[in-house]
Design a protein around this nucleic acid. Structure first.
Lengths: 181, 181
DNA sequence: CTACGTTAGTTTCATTTGAAACCACTTCCA
DNA sequence: TGGAAGTGGTTTCAAATGAAACTAACGTAG
């Protein structure tokens, strides 16, 4: 149940740190009821499962899978895909992307040419081998997701969708305000 | 949006990897609609914010904060707290816990004695200094959580609570079945 | 056309992380 | 007693990560 939200502004008793000598102990905090902790644990469990699938069945890490997801999506489009645009679509920074791509090029899953229009940029694409992996991994990913979501009613699945979006927006806004880039 | 959820059981066309030579391209996957990805990104954004608070205001990392949360909770109880029991309550492994405790002992926040009943075990507790930090950090943590949850209606907060629990149970069950310990 | 500021991407280096090896102690059982 | 075998916790070593430095190419202002 957790404490039933007592109006947005917290009661004064909940913020004792204003007076350094006030020894009133704050109500202790149960980690298991703390949303950031729960989210972190949940995301970790799921990431491990997903990572295990990608790793053992396709030899890919999660960053690599993300790169693949973007390249597979863009496949056939006329616009050459740069590492930067991959980074923008994956919430990874350019170093992570660079490393993931390097491994995938090495493994023959991704082709990298210099974009002729701008020679700083690389033009990335899945190779045939990469595409073959992509065509297997996408259904595997969907299947895992479905297995997980099967624990939820359709309404709850919709609710989850909404909540994730709302929370993400709120968290990003809060982080910005806080100066965490 | 997203592909309009086509009944819990996926259509056969969605699992083509059974025939290696089937070249029918699977529908591409939008990372932004993929729950494991979204959860991971969300948890990361929040973790960064929380970590920034703990770090700049209290000089603590997240593992350290978790240790503190457990010790603060147990404070005054007659049972001496061992590193192992901390690990059990924090979803961290014993190495992480060991390192977090080492830093906190170093910083004078935690006292560590050998449990006289079992000299392998350590008896951990917050020092006065640690307790003082605890009493400030708990309200700060609560406040952050409240700011985040303020983006949700009370009903949505309740829904979130439920969904996190259900998903966690499902993910853990699935991971076990998969052999990811 | 040349010089400065910017962007794309990689590399380097220090730190963090994880797995396995490792001590110290306890427990089980002959 | 006196070993195995097991548990609590730390350490070691290798691999992953992140931040900042760096190279190369572009755009633009003189």
């Amino acid at each position: 149940m957790r404490d039933g939200k007592p109006a947005p502004d917290a009661p004064p008793a909940d913020t004792p740190e204003t007076t350094g000598h006030d020894t009133a102990p704050p109500p202790p905090l149960l980690l298991d009821g703390f949303v950031p902790y729960r989210l972190s644990v949940l995301a970790n469990v799921i990431s491990r499962s997903v990572a295990a699938i990608y790793e053992e069945r396709f030899g890919l890490t999660i960053p690599e899978w993300r790169v693949m997801a973007v390249l597979g999506l863009e496949d056939g489009g006329p616009e050459p895909v740069s590492a930067n645009s991959v980074a923008a679509r994956t919430a990874m920074d350019k170093v992570q992307v660079s490393r993931a791509i390097a491994r995938m090029v090495q493994a023959g899953l991704v082709s990298r040419d210099t974009d002729s229009a701008d020679r700083r940029r690389s033009a990335l694409a899945l190779t045939d081998k990469g595409l073959a992996v992509y065509r297997q991994i996408v259904p595997a990913a969907r299947r895992y997701e479905q297995e997980l979501l099967a624990a939820l009613s359709p309404e709850d699945q919709a609710a989850l969708d909404r909540l994730l979006s709302t929370l993400h927006a709120a968290a990003v806004a809060r982080a910005r305000a806080q100066g965490v880039e």
